[in-house]
Design a protein around this nucleic acid. Structure first.
Lengths: 268, 268
DNA sequence: TAGTGGTCTAGACCACTGG
DNA sequence: CAGTGGTCTAGACCACTAA
């Protein structure tokens, strides 16, 4: 209609107005926005346009819709998050594929006698694989590792392909149990003489210890691994990208954000 | 129409059919999907419904739309990713707020003489703050730290509030430079005698070293920090959640995924 | 049952891309 | 210029929620 706002979709303007009103406290968190019908009247726009505007708010995590109830204000500001992305296919696999593993020992270990804390008591025996990991072109090992597999899935350790595929991925293939969460704990440690000998470093030298717990969709820890790396052979590097919680960066770009929140969105 | 597909929106069915066709190779990556008009005819549905279906594909990262061109197939499968989320407001701040900092030294250091690699040559002098960090209830320090600030922003280190707010956040407030990426490198180290004395640990004992580089939207590194923690006083823990790339978990739930990709989506 | 958001239609005009 | 996706309308019916 107007000559000025030419390029700007109206639902952008509506979304801006609504998110501004939310920031201003006109619609406090927890309350309901006006109904879609009311917004149509208020802005003089069709329902579809209003819905598109509300969708932007929902994508940004500012609001949520519930059929039969209304549109609830969820937060006052767009929350920002730094995210580390690990592409399941690329990063984790790459590590495994670029290194080779040598299994030194296989045993069934009671949960309370493992080197790392395991769920359950001594009556649950976890399958343990101990070994070394070598970089492709290096002769010296870059890690000493122990992998603990919950008893139910111990059978996967029989697979012959185990050197080239992460064990948690074997479990996924064979049992359909998926790692929906990975907890990781990184600390510095002094390398004990037994492990030091295998890694060919002096006893009590400095090492990096990484403990990973793989948690299934049902919340069950089904695999735990520990790696000990000589300090000079391994660094743990990661990159955190700024993103917006709860929506794709693309959607965010489409909405005018308050000044403090602007910035290029890092996309993958 | 039919009595059976009652609960299922038609655009879900369309999105399923299309994503299945993509998986089957009927629409290879890089090609264009049929135009919206064609899809309307093909499925006998209105344009809005078709658009809603395509929107699902776009949200999943399977396709992208370009005005005047068409809808391009971007990938064959939904890519999955493990993400670590660091809420800018909660996690990073919490660390700062739950610890206190004591600045021991302030200096301007040429880039090539810093303890960590800095961008630029010896003619660029970075503002360096060296200090200790204490846990709220502990008397012994949990970290020795050095913060290097690029010359352009050195002024922020004059702020009196610097103890309670991360420096990169001060830079953001004052200069509008936002950390769009944080690179982090974690390694084990032997603590040198100078630092050991300050941390009150024996010289050459084991420590965890964390180096962080803050990268601005323009790709410029504007702050670098190094922390050295006694091994027994600090662990770095993180949690990676399985997510779908390029879209909100909520949207993903709305589409029937191929068997291998199903699983609860962890939402925050 | 009344009122909410969820889905869907049939049409229209516009902005952008490529030949 | 023809054809694409982007926006918008005015209407309709449905599914869900709460009183």
């Amino acid at each position: 209609m107007s000559l000025f706002e030419a390029r700007r979709p109206r639902y952008h303007a509506v979304a801006d107005a609504l998110s501004q009103a939310i920031r201003d406290g006109k619609y406090p968190v927890g309350t309901l926005l006006p109904t879609e019908a009311e917004l149509c009247a208020q802005f003089g726009l069709s329902r579809q346009t209003i819905r598109e505007a509300v969708r932007l708010l929902v994508d940004l995590g500012l609001a949520s819709r519930r059929q039969g109830v209304g549109t609830r204000v969820e937060r006052r500001d767009v929350s920002q998050t730094y995210v580390q992305r690990l592409e399941a296919v690329s990063d984790i696999w790459q590590y495994v594929e670029e290194t080779s593993r040598k299994v030194l020992k296989v045993a069934d270990v009671p949960a309370d006698r493992a080197r790392v804390p395991l769920p359950g008591d001594g009556s649950r025996r976890w399958r343990m694989l101990e070994g070394l990991r070598f970089a492709a072109d290096e002769r010296r090992p870059i890690a000493w590792t122990q992998v603990y597999v919950a008893p139910e899935y111990a059978a996967v350790t029989d697979a012959r392909s185990r050197d080239r595929v992460p064990i948690f991925s074997l479990i996924e293939q064979r049992f359909g149990v998926k790692a929906s969460r990975i907890r990781q704990d990184i600390s510095a440690t002094s390398i004990g003489s037994d492990v030091a000998k295998l890694l060919r470093v002096p006893a009590r030298s400095v090492g990096l210890s990484v403990v990973r717990e793989y948690v299934s969709t049902r919340g069950e820890v089904f695999e735990v691994t520990i790696s000990i790396h000589p300090a000079d052979r391994y660094h743990y590097s990661m990159q955190l990208d700024l993103a917006y919680a709860n929506e794709s960066a693309f959607t965010a770009e489409r909405l005018t954000l308050p000044a403090g929140l602007r910035g290029s969105s890092s996309r993958k």
